[in-house]
Design a protein around this nucleic acid. Structure first.
Length: 303
DNA sequence: CGTGTTTGACCTGCGC
DNA sequence: GCGCAGGTCAAACACG
């Protein structure tokens, strides 16, 4: 059953090249994908169960979809958010071009800058006294490093798309030049700094723009409202050194095929095959991951 | 009572 | 320095 949903969702992922809609992001997003569920049926709303750009490596995800350049150098380095902004603007306006400059592994190293801006003012270390609003002095002198961002556009009637994680809304702001407010959500799991912003495109009110920021450092909650746990084992959502982030980086670029669903499916199958190869060569246990996430007919059986 | 939402105030970065 | 816009905080409130 999850089989069906997964396949459909992935088939509807396509490159996002609408320059106008980009602007509604403020050009801040590292990567943007358009996700068009087959319908507005709420059962498809949890599409991000599958995508989970915040828990998986962004770069891997991009490559998995064949949406990024095949060049792999960016996968090795942490790309500054500011750089990405510029690249994104430049790249994404071009049809059939690579989606983004690939924030790549940035999310994997975010442990070091957990206390970047607000530094989780409530609760944790730094003397409780300063845990008020004046605590934002942060580490002065250092320019704050933003988490890699990853955005999806989704045709949906509801703003907050179910993705398996638990989110707490902590703010809402009116967006300039847009009649629709932007909502701010934070993962409710302790020590998880992942945030997401949800807004509706003023260009296309039926489109919801979800921007993830950061990377989950925990598996999916066991008490799910969505069905993500049924689609992916927790191991997939936990940053693991054994997870082949680099694998998908090596995948060929298929984004030119994304025009039709069949091609997307074929791309997916090939990527899966490569994953198997990598797992085999590097002795990476998949914990049944492939079986869970991949329709069996996509799996090639190595001799 | 625990959890999540709402909402006005506050903070910060940035352009002028 | 000032004003604007984006982002965050936290008290009040709603709900199961």
């Amino acid at each position: 059953m999850s089989d069906h949903g997964f396949r459909d969702i992935y088939h509807h992922v396509s490159a996002f090249n609408n320059a106008h809609d980009q602007q509604s992001f403020g050009g801040e997003t590292d990567s943007i994908y358009r996700v068009s569920p087959p319908s507005v049926n709420p059962s498809y709303i949890n599409f991000t169960d599958c995508l989970h750009g915040t828990s998986m490596d962004y770069g891997s995800l991009e490559k998995a979809f064949g949406l990024s350049p095949s060049s792999s150098e960016v996968s090795k380095q942490q790309v500054g958010a500011e750089d990405l902004v510029g690249n994104t603007d430049e790249v994404m306006g071009t049809p059939n071009s690579s989606i983004c400059s690939s924030s790549s592994e940035a999310g994997c190293e975010e442990d070091s800058d957990k206390s970047k801006k607000d530094g989780q003012p409530k609760g944790t270390e730094d003397g409780g006294e300063s845990s008020k609003k004046g605590n934002k002095a942060k580490t002065k002198g250092e320019k704050k490093e933003r988490e890699p961002r990853f955005a999806f556009m989704t045709k949906s009637e509801v703003d907050h798309l179910e993705d398996g994680y638990r989110w707490r809304k902590y703010g809402q702001k009116a967006v300039k030049n847009s009649p629709y407010p932007r909502s701010y959500y934070r993962c409710t799991t302790q020590k998880c700094t992942v945030k997401k912003r949800v807004e509706r495109s003023f260009q296309d009110p039926s489109t919801v723009i979800t921007t993830y920021e950061g990377q989950h450092n925990h598996p999916l909650p066991t008490t799910l409202r969505g069905s993500a746990a049924g689609l992916f084992p927790p191991s997939m959502f936990t940053p693991s050194p054994s997870f082949p982030h680099g694998l998908l980086m090596q995948m060929p670029n298929y984004h030119h095929q994304m025009n039709n669903q069949a091609a997307a499916g074929s791309m997916f199958a090939q990527n899966v095959s490569s994953f198997q190869q990598y797992a085999h060569q590097h002795q990476v246990p998949d914990y049944g991951l492939l079986q869970d996430m991949v329709p069996s007919r996509f799996l090639k059986h190595e001799p």
